[in-house]
């Protein structure tokens, strides 16, 4: 297939499937809580609903507030192009690596945090301050995860992951550290709560509080795509998968099944974790991410020892 087609395929794949994963997590959570819960497709309905609403922009807000949704979605989609899903090796893989991904995500976060301050509401300030606090503590743990992966494969290039064949102790520990990081990055329960708009608990929701209509839809979509990207990255580390070979249809089928199954495993784990732990105080998050950092060190040590 043509490279350009693959690009579009990958982009569309991320945009179309990402809300589904969010809906799936919510559905599993509700099932675990013995609730009927919303439809699994609710995130799609929400996006459509938001696009059909007229948005309200704060009088205090400047152009920063208006451009942020676009910067957020563009940074997220740029990362989506760097993750090996359909495109395992292409000229674009030289564009950036795992480290660059961290920084490109930081671009979107930077603007969202600024937009939150832009409206002059104290909720926004609260969210912005907390988000930057959590994000800065995430960085060292994330860096060590990248480091442990790098030590095993000698490259930070994401397409190298697709060449991985076996699971090692290091990648297991590294992936669990990454899992904790992703909980914080995707504003999941012990760190943040996507379901509530209570000022004491919210971080990401507080930043997006002043957004409405299509802008909010873009921000939500960006958050969902970002979550999906992280799930794929964990999957690539913990459940290595070989490059797709179009030899026969049966092989393709089982490959695709396993490809999706590993994402499902992560989704289910995430839902179970979210249901079974309580939201922690903001200042406990430092300990939580400190734990992720220690796991990162252990993963690095395992990688150094060759385990």
């Amino acid at each position: 297939m043509n490279k350009i087609t693959l690009f579009f395929l990958q982009l569309i794949f991320f945009i179309v499937v990402a809300p589904f994963l969010s809906g799936l997590i919510t559905k599993i959570k509700n099932s675990l809580r013995m609730r009927k819960g919303q439809s699994i497709f609710q995130p799609y309905y929400n996006l459509i609903k938001l696009f059909s609403k007229i948005q309200v922009v704060s009088e205090t807000a400047s152009w920063i507030f208006r451009v942020t949704p676009f910067i957020l979605i563009s940074s997220t989609l740029t990362v989506a192009l760097l993750v090996p899903v359909f495109i395992f090796s292409n000229p674009l893989y030289r564009m950036g690596d795992f480290i660059a991904i961290i920084f490109i995500f930081a671009l979107g976060r930077f603007f969202l945090a600024l937009a939150a301050l832009d409206t002059g509401s104290s909720f926004g300030g609260m969210g912005s301050s907390r988000e930057m606090f959590i994000a800065s503590l995430v960085e060292p743990a994330l860096c060590l995860v990248v480091f442990s992966v790098f030590l095993q494969f000698g490259s930070t290039n994401l397409s190298v992951f697709s060449g991985m064949h076996a699971v090692s102790v290091s990648s297991l520990v590294g992936a669990s550290a990454l899992f904790l990081v992703v909980i914080a990055e995707t504003s999941r329960v012990p760190v943040d709560n996507q379901e509530t708009h209570l000022e004491l608990t919210m971080v990401h929701e507080a930043m997006a509080l002043e957004y409405s209509g299509a802008s909010l839809a873009l921000i939500e979509l960006a958050a969902q795509v970002k979550q999906m990207i992280w799930f794929f990255l964990i999957a690539q580390i913990i459940f290595p998968i070989t490059t797709l070979s179009l030899v026969n249809l049966k092989g393709l089928f089982s490959w695709g099944l396993w490809y999706l199954a590993r994402i499902l495993i992560i989704v289910i784990t995430m839902a179970i974790v979210e249901v079974s732990v309580a939201k922690m105080r903001l200042f406990r998050v430092a300990d939580f991410l400190g734990f992720a950092f220690v796991l990162g060190i252990i993963a690095s040590i395992c990688a150094i020892l060759g385990a």
Binding site: F51, I54, V56, T60, F70, S121, F123, A214, S215
Partner: peptide
């Protein structure tokens, strides 16, 4: 956004 967003944004004070 331009193709699908509905209407022009309305200006209003920050939620208080």
């Amino acid at each position: 956004y331009r193709l699908f967003a509905k209407g022009k944004p309305v200006s209003y004070q920050t939620w208080d």
